[in-house]
Nucleic acid binder design. Structure first.
Lengths: 208, 208
DNA sequence: TCCATTTCTGACCATATGGTCAGGACGATG
DNA sequence: CATCGTCCTGACCATATGGTCAGAAATGGA
């Protein structure tokens, strides 16, 4: 089904152009969603002609799929890195900080996923209920052992993870809103770090 | 500029059809975003022909604008209701619960706004930096007085409001993801209420 | 019942869009 | 420099889409 993976870009030109296309596609898809984006927009942003786009990728779908698939691992890496043998609060705080840093450094990637999920995740539904669910369930189980050991507060692990997603991605996905409300003077991400540190510190502290 | 407001729907048929159109448009726009939605989809969902749609609304833009504008007041009502003279924690907790309830009861409306803001809010940019900013600044000032009086913890009011938005809207905007991860057995919103109660209770409690 | 107004439709239009194709330009390799 | 495979393009196509229009059908009031 998927003819990628075997025949990677070989020549210099292929590498440069596929890279430019994916970069441009990220820009456009993250701004307009899949249906709202057009090949002409992507081609223009990549500095290529539309037929040339389709010389490197067989279809609009394929570009989108390549983008999503290629970024999924990066996107989930921080959660994967959550170490069952680490110090519970450190592990969770580190995870949260990494997610926030990703929102800051890769807001377009965040919006790409947000657009996809918002619109019903038609292209990644299997990933959500497959790999993602497995990963989250796995880490939730780890967190549960920490709770049982009394090392962090007794809160639902799944919703703890959701809260990290929601609070960190909010600053990327709703950036224009955050900026509009805070004004251009304030640094939303810098402030968010302090705020979220405090929030999760309080949330995780076990009851006396 | 806006020729609405004066000539509201009068006849029974007008009322019924404009209602059906807005209902259908909410369904379609919230699922696909502005550019991703088509008039044919909306017309079909409303049980009308496309020309008939355009008999009631002058353009696709107009339908979208009417939807957004009509819902803004409803959407911001809970924040407006935050009472400076009320008991601080009760006021904030009530606000959070109302927002969560709105996410539960009106997920399509939430996604409509989410789509709009995600894609750069081209049609509501003025509202964000105008009315919304004013409202938020106003309520943030109220919260700040509560903090100064030592009645709630010393946390940034703007980010407190952001956190309420992020955490409650997450359950509507990313519903498919939440459902995929949680499975169909669990009731995300019921669980969220308990989780968020606990979270904000801990967040707001003043330092000893 | 008759007429004016409102409501609705099929046919149509201009443009946008995803995608194709024949062939030309280019670049590396002998 | 000849040649072969890579790279690229203009022209083109089928379909989708937002929107228009002349006129038919329904509605409502006198």
């Amino acid at each position: 089904m998927d003819d990628n993976g075997e025949n990677r870009p070989k020549t210099r030109i292929q590498r440069r152009n596929t890279q430019a296309i994916l970069e441009a596609a990220l820009e456009v898809f993250s701004s307009y969603g899949f249906r709202g984006a057009t090949l002409d927009q992507i081609a223009k942003a990549a500095g290529l002609s539309k037929p040339n786009l389709l010389y490197y990728f067989p279809s609009k779908e394929a570009i989108h799929a390549e983008l999503l698939g290629g970024l999924l691992d990066v996107w989930l890496a921080p959660l994967r890195a959550l170490n069952p043998d680490g110090e519970p609060r450190t592990e969770i705080m580190t995870y949260m900080r990494r997610k926030l840093e990703m929102s800051r450094a890769m807001p377009r990637e965040s919006r790409l996923f947000a657009n996809e999920v918002l619109q019903g995740a038609p292209r990644v539904a299997e990933v959500l209920s497959g790999g993602l669910k497995t990963l989250v369930d796995d880490k939730a189980a780890v967190i549960r052992t920490w709770i049982e050991a009394g090392r962090i507060a007794r809160i639902d692990p799944h919703h703890l993870i959701f809260s990290i997603w929601a609070l960190t991605q909010h600053y990327a996905d709703f950036e224009v809103q955050v900026r509009a409300v805070l004004g251009t003077e304030r640094d939303a991400f810098a402030e968010a770090e302090g705020f979220l540190d405090r929030l999760f510190d309080r949330l995780l502290t076990p009851d006396p």
